[in-house]
């Protein structure tokens, strides 16, 4: 039985609530439920680029935290986003993929889409610092 207290990624944060962030049953798949507060350009109802970036960063952190069974501190140190097309006022899906996870660093790619996974709205790459790894036993 795991004797460790839950990590921060296991406790829902105000930021996760604000983003309406949700992890899917499928590992590495996430969802941002659209809210009006996510809009960047009200004239066309597009989602703010910083909201998409926040989703990408959160997905990467969550993915690594889950991979480490929540037994380490995971901190994002950099993100790089390419905005591939204009978004619209609907939910955003994301899929995170671990490129490499080491003892101290991890690298994660995240792709975001709305209607069709084959028509992505953004892609991101994130670099994360891993520290204070605890015994999983």
């Amino acid at each position: 039985m795991n004797q460790h207290p839950p990590s921060q990624m296991q406790i829902r944060s105000p930021m996760q609530d604000w983003l309406a962030f949700q992890s899917d049953d499928e590992k590495g798949k996430y969802l941002l439920h659209f809210h009006e507060q996510h809009i960047g350009n009200p004239m066309i109802g597009s989602i703010h680029g910083g909201v998409t970036a926040s989703l990408v960063e959160m997905c990467a952190e969550h993915m690594i935290s889950v991979e480490l069974e929540h037994q380490a501190d995971v901190k994002l140190i950099s993100s790089s986003l390419d905005y591939l097309r204009i978004s619209k006022d609907t939910d955003v899906h994301a899929r995170a993929r671990i490129v490499r996870i080491g003892r101290r660093m991890a690298f994660v790619d995240v792709w975001c889409w709305q209607d069709d996974e084959n028509i992505p709205i953004a892609r991101g790459t994130c670099t994360l610092r891993i520290s204070n790894q605890r015994d999983k036993s």
Binding site: Q8, I11, S13, P14, M15, D17, W18, L19, H48, G49, G50, V51, A53, S54, L55, E57, M58, L76, S79
Partner: peptide
Amino acid sequence: LERFVDRVDTNHLHSGFCTLILDSVMG
């Protein structure tokens, strides 16, 4: 702001907050 807090034990904000502001102000 509180709504962007990531760690409720330390009151640290999520990195996405700064990214959001940077994208806005740079634009």
